[in-house]
Write a protein that binds this DNA or RNA. Structure first.
Length: 304
DNA sequence: ATGGACACCTGTGGGC
DNA sequence: TGCCCACAGGTGTCCA
């Protein structure tokens, strides 16, 4: 489900109530949500409970909370259906809640973080922070001017993830140069989190519609100028979606307060099958692609 | 290097 | 009502 705008909305919400908090307890309702913590649930508990949360950082669709001295972090990925809800301790149980992390906020409020995940493709883990190959870890931790020892570090499990377009150190020239060497279809290329992170199926289809590019056009056959335009468009789309709190179609995406985002009202291609293209009125088509769907205008977005 | 199939999971909605 | 199928905002691995 969640792509960069949804994860960023969650990050901002977590930062507000969890920065400076102390973890006071843990309830594991379904240990499958800890499957990426390889040393097991007991070790997860030992490393988490009692530690202090320093910050909430994101790169692409990964987010993490540096802990204690800043050399480890609680790493979260939402997969297709993950949610992170901040609740008071007496708030009614949430359906499909897999993990509850109890904490005391820096203002002394007793709250809990509930990791709700229908499909269990998401996960929580404690991971070591290591030096990045490319400078600062995330473009989106708060208060960047203050010196923070964890600022240039990234979780081992996210070390392969490229910068995303909203990262202030993102370099479109470098990314486009790499894209021009790819013989794959352009959609596959912009979904490759090793090249540019944060883009998923919704924002890929939206960006390609806006750029009038067919999803299967080979990246190495597209001009440098057009690829630069595509990257700039994707940045604009991601930023616009962040402003709307992300995209919600159903119960599968909510911010930390359980509220939906409103970007679905501004979609041109994704989920618009059979509705008229807003440029040329041709019905938007959905085509099976890579075990999912691609939505595009068959007139505006030609294969060649 | 590239693309396709599939695995990991649960839930919902449509057709019959 | 019930059953079966398609489908869902992701990622990683294995195989040609």
């Amino acid at each position: 489900m969640p792509e960069l705008p949804e994860v960023e909305t969650v990050r901002a919400g977590l930062a507000k109530s969890m920065t400076g908090a102390t973890i006071t307890g843990l309830k594991i309702h379904d240990a499958r949500s800890l499957k990426r913590h390889l040393s097991g649930p007991v070790d997860f508990r030992n490393k988490l409970v009692g530690s202090k949360v320093l910050d909430v950082v994101r790169r692409g669709k990964f987010l993490w909370l540096p802990l204690g001295l800043g050399d480890t972090a609680l790493v979260g990925h939402l997969g297709m259906s993950g949610q992170m809800l901040i609740r008071t301790i007496d708030y009614p149980a949430d359906n499909l809640n897999r993990i509850t992390i109890e904490f005391q906020s820096k203002t002394g409020k007793q709250l809990e973080l509930r990791f709700v995940d229908q499909r269990i493709f998401g996960s929580l883990a404690i991971d070591d922070l290591v030096a990045t190959r490319d400078g600062r870890a995330g473009g989106f931790s708060s208060g960047k001017n203050k010196a923070k020892p964890w600022q240039d570090l990234i979780p081992v499990s996210a070390a392969h993830i490229a910068r995303d377009p909203l990262d202030e150190d993102f370099d479109p020239e470098v990314v486009v140069a790499k894209m021009r060497n790819k013989k794959s279809g352009i959609k596959r290329v912009i979904l490759d989190q090793n090249l540019v992170s944060g883009i998923g199926n919704i924002y890929a289809d939206e960006s390609l519609w806006l750029a009038k590019l067919h999803f299967d056009r080979s990246a190495d056959g597209i001009s440098k100028a057009k690829l630069m335009e595509l990257i700039e468009i994707s940045k604009q789309v991601l930023a616009a979606a962040v402003k709307q709190g992300g995209t919600s179609f159903d119960q599968q995406y909510k911010n930390v307060n359980g509220e939906a985002g409103y970007f679905s009202q501004q979609l041109f291609a994704y989920g618009q099958t059979d509705r008229p293209c807003q440029r040329c009125q041709t019905p938007i088509r959905r085509q099976a692609w890579a075990n999912r769907g691609s939505h595009f205008c068959p007139k505006c977005q030609r294969p060649k």
